[in-house]
Design a protein around this nucleic acid. Structure first.
Length: 283
DNA sequence: ATCCCCACCTGGCCGC
DNA sequence: TGCGGCCAGGTGGGGA
């Protein structure tokens, strides 16, 4: 499911309820996620208090007492549900419920049908974990600007669509928001990234626009609680609303939303992933 | 070094 | 109704 806005929505939902609560126990389904669930997860996390909950890119970071951290990635289909006290009493684990956290008087369920998600536990700074340390800056952060994009794009041949999905260049974007940001920026997804940078290494105006539109699309989506496609919902099981504002994603064959444009949205495949764009508006 | 492809999974949908 | 094929929001390892 989840790109940065969806993960932020989930993180806020967890934060509201779980901070200062103590994990009393953990039940596992026995299935592996993308990676095996760490053998010491149950013993190390049980009895610890959740001191704070953070997010880095698409990762949710649970900071527990005694400097233990859980690093959680939702993959494509992972989700957390916070059960009410009433629901928790009689709750029977459903299919794909892989981790159930028990608190004093309620439960939190991690469900993941495709098992592409994963969880790590560490007693070191989670920022140094190999999956987090290599991440590029994320939209809306202080160190995300056109200069850093220009540096990554300088003299490089790859299509801008692929580069924006590369989490080491910019982290937090996925297929939906890359397609939407490129449409808003009027940039063709097949455009080579070196074409957005001057030969002296400085950002062209189109790259500055792209940076601004990335920030804008992410900001708007967070305000609407993310996008709900298939199985994404927040920790209360409610859907986000940003999917209602898509201009190109999933709109193959439909009319371009730009004023005075009579083109239909096209779907192509780049690096094995669908790209949606308007061939007339995006040059 | 850079970049693409594939595998990892299940489920939903579409056409026959 | 059933079955095969295709599609899906992500990532990291291997190989070109």
């Amino acid at each position: 499911m989840p790109e940065l806005p969806e993960v932020e929505t989930v993180k806020k939902g967890l934060e509201d309820i779980l901070v200062n609560k103590t994990i009393k126990g953990i039940n596992l389904s026995g299935f592996s996620l993308r990676f095996p669930i760490p053998k010491n997860l149950v013993s190390l996390a049980s009895g610890k208090k959740i001191v704070s909950i953070g997010r880095r890119s698409k990762y949710i970071l649970f900071n527990l007492s005694e400097n233990i951290s859980l690093i959680s990635h939702l993959g494509m289909s992972g989700n957390y549900r916070i059960l009410s006290q009433e629901e928790s009493k009689s709750y029977k684990a459903k299919k794909h419920d892989h981790i159930i956290f028990q608190f004093e008087d309620f439960k939190v369920v991690y469900n993941d049908p495709r098992r592409f998600g994963y969880i790590f536990i560490t007693d070191k700074d989670p920022k140094d974990h190999r999956s987090i340390a290599c991440l590029g800056p994320e939209p809306m952060s202080n160190n995300f600007n056109e200069a850093i994009l220009a540096k990554s794009f300088y003299k490089k041949e790859r299509p801008v669509k692929n580069a924006l999905l590369d989490q080491t260049i910019i982290s937090g974007l996925g297929n939906i928001y890359v397609c939407e940001a490129l449409f808003r920026s009027k940039i063709n997804p097949k455009k080579k990234i070196k074409q957005l940078v001057y030969s002296n290494g400085s950002a062209k105006n189109s790259l500055i626009i792209l940076k601004n539109e990335i920030n804008e699309v992410i900001k708007e989506s967070i305000l609407l609680g993310g996008s709900s496609l298939k199985d994404f919902s927040n920790t209360e099981g409610k859907m986000g609303y940003f999917q209602n504002t898509f201009s190109v994603y999933g709109r193959e064959g439909e009319l371009c939303v730009s004023k005075d444009c009579d083109q239909k949205i096209v779907r192509i495949v780049q690096s094995g992933r669908s790209t949606f764009y308007c061939p007339k508006c995006q040059k």
